[in-house]
């Protein structure tokens, strides 16, 4: 490996000599690094839990999350902050202001992207739509068809980010709403098969968009006893080219991401960090140029 790198650098050196002046260094040796920060199921938990709370006394709170996020951004400006849904419902802040303050604070925190959870329909799809002007970040969902709803064109299947020359594709997946949310609330929203949609979207992100990193923001839930119910673990095993699934819905607290073999028998990660903004998830991806690699070797340190 070292020899290859040496040869390559020499070749670059020769190329340099003929043009003079320019340096390839920045492009050759700097290892690129993307940090993904994430939350899920924050459920309007704006303030820390009350000091009398039986489990989470004084824990959580947006003002603390902000300090952590800022620290990480200072450390690595190439950071994305993502949320896997269920931003709404859980404290009187939602009952009184319908999600306004949740979105405003998330905008202050400079969230980059989120997906919708079932509770985000609690004030109906119109209630969600009404709060959208308070969100300076986008929502993605690939398997909710919003064509005949107010959200048509406002929620895209995926979004692409460029950070330090790395192309990152992030798509969203939502849970089946029938039986979980009243139809009066989600109206003409159509739920599409998340596995099929994920397979199509990843193909597009990988082969047409040439993304270097593919992330799925999922509100499907981590895992279920019911073997027929789709979950993040099942989705991971049934797809390929997803590097990370950031999950929600089941309020599963994973001390570290779960390593899952995808359809190509390659390692990928599924993560979820409980609920109520009690934790901040972080996954760091380090990159190298593809052309001096023969196989997709990667080191995963969990």
């Amino acid at each position: 490996m070292k020899r290859r790198k040496f040869i390559k650098q020499t070749a670059a050196g020769v190329a340099l000599a003929s043009f003079g002046g320019f340096t390839f260094q920045s492009c050759e040796t700097k290892q690129k690094h993307i940090t993904i920060l994430h939350t899920n199921d924050t459920h309007s938990q704006i303030e820390p839990f009350d000091e009398s709370h039986h489990r989470y006394a004084n824990k959580g709170g947006v003002a603390r999350r902000a300090v952590l996020v800022e620290q990480v951004r200072k450390e690595n400006p190439n950071t994305l902050l993502l949320d896997a849904g269920d931003i709404f419902q859980g404290t009187p802040y939602f009952n009184y202001f319908g999600g306004e303050i949740e979105f405003k604070l998330m905008s202050m925190l400079k969230y980059d992207l989120a997906t919708l959870g079932n509770h985000d329909f609690d004030n109906s799809i119109d209630g969600f739509y009404k709060q959208l002007p308070n969100a300076n970040f986008d929502f993605v969902s690939a398997n909710y068809d919003f064509k005949n709803t107010v959200l048509d064109t406002h929620v895209k299947p995926y979004k692409i980010f460029y950070k330090d020359g790395i192309k990152i594709g992030v798509f969203g997946l939502g849970i089946e709403l029938d039986g979980l949310v009243n139809k009066r609330m989600y109206k003409e929203t159509k739920y599409l098969n998340p596995v099929e949609i994920a397979q199509d979207i990843t193909k597009e992100l990988k082969n047409q968009e040439n993304c270097d990193l593919i992330i799925c923001l999922s509100h499907l839930g981590y895992n279920y006893k019911d073997p027929d119910k789709i979950s993040d673990l099942k989705l991971a095993a049934a797809t390929k080219d997803i590097d990370l699934i950031i999950g929600g819905h089941t309020h599963t607290f994973l001390p570290k991401p779960t390593l899952v073999k995808n359809l190509n028998d390659e390692n990928m990660l599924v993560n979820q960090v409980g609920a109520y903004g009690l934790n901040l998830g972080r996954v760091d991806f380090y990159f190298d140029e593809n052309n001096n690699k023969t196989t997709s070797e990667k080191t995963i340190i969990l």
């Binding site: 003002a63 603390r64 300090v67 604070l105 190298d288 990667k298 340190i301």
Partner: peptide, 30 residues
């Protein structure tokens, strides 16, 4: 244009515990 490949992944979840300072601009907002 040469596609970038993930060579290393690390992960760390941080508990948002009372020891962490609060950013007062957020408190002022809500």
């Amino acid at each position: 244009n040469s596609s970038q490949q993930v060579i290393k992944i690390t992960a760390k979840t941080t508990a948002i515990n009372p020891e962490i300072q609060q950013d007062s601009t957020y408190i002022k907002k809500f």
